[in-house]
């Protein structure tokens, strides 16, 4: 193969794999302060490429104590996906007052431990959900709200939504209904608390153990995968 031919081929490969990337995330060269050319591959250079590890729970009474604290202080990521998210704000109104159960909203995934998927997930939203979910720290819990997350609900044959949420991220508690009332969500929180206290809410570790399966499912749906494999 001649040199020019090879170059051409490489260029073609690059174009296909970079097709979905934002311009600043494509491989490119930058000119340094001294005039030298530096080649950067943003996905490898700017993002952490390390694989996540399973974080073993502590043993015995310490883990029980921690689980009690985790259950009594549920910080929910303020992220609404489908129509169900309209039922979340009333939770914090005087009528339902979720604060008394130790539930609070956090605006950043780093600090929150509970992710409420509040309804149908469009393919576009799924990508954001995966990013946010992976940025949350172990242990983390997922509550799936409404029938859309269970089997697709009334969007069952939609061209643009996913059907079963637990093919993409592990789910701890389902709350059925279309749409579930705030009382149902409160009871869902209490179910989640029981699960955490029993030490059965290990979704974060499950996700890492079966990462390949989850990733394959996710990539089947998200055709324009333009982010690192795991979003730290």
């Amino acid at each position: 193969m001649s040199l020019s031919n090879k170059n051409e081929q490489e260029k073609n490969i690059r174009v296909t794999e970079d097709k979905f990337l934002a311009p600043e995330n494509r491989k490119h060269t930058v000119i340094g302060p001294g005039g030298e050319e530096i080649f950067v591959d943003p996905l490898n250079d700017y993002f952490c490429t390390e694989k996540p590890k399973v974080e073993k729970p502590y043993k015995g009474i310490l883990e029980k104590f921690y689980n009690w604290a985790r259950a009594e202080s549920l910080w929910v990521l303020g992220y609404g996906t489908g129509c169900g998210s309209i039922e979340l704000p009333p939770l914090f109104s005087p009528r339902f007052d979720a604060y008394r159960f130790g539930v609070a909203m956090r605006p950043t995934p780093r600090q929150s431990g509970v992710f409420i998927i509040s309804g149908y997930l469009a393919v576009k939203t799924l990508k954001r959900v995966i990013r946010s979910y992976e940025q949350m720290q172990n242990p983390k819990y997922v509550i799936a709200l409404g029938s859309c997350t269970i089997n697709g609900g009334m969007y069952w044959d939609s061209y643009n939504t996913i059907n079963r949420l637990d093919h993409y991220i592990p789910v701890d508690v389902y709350i059925a209904g279309c749409m579930p009332r705030p009382e149902a969500i409160l009871s869902g929180f209490n179910r989640l608390k029981e699960k955490i206290k029993e030490g059965r809410a290990e979704g974060a570790n499950e996700y890492i153990e079966k990462l390949e399966w989850y990733k394959a499912n996710q990539k089947k749906i998200i055709k324009d995968w333009n982010m690192p494999d795991y979003n730290w």
Binding site: P52, E55, P57, Y66, A69, R70, E72, S73, G113, N138
Partner: peptide, 15 residues
């Protein structure tokens, strides 16, 4: 609740 939040935050497994 502030105590519980504090214990919870110190018990997060990954940073």
């Amino acid at each position: 609740q502030p105590y519980i939040n504090l214990i919870k935050n110190y018990s997060i497994r990954s940073q």
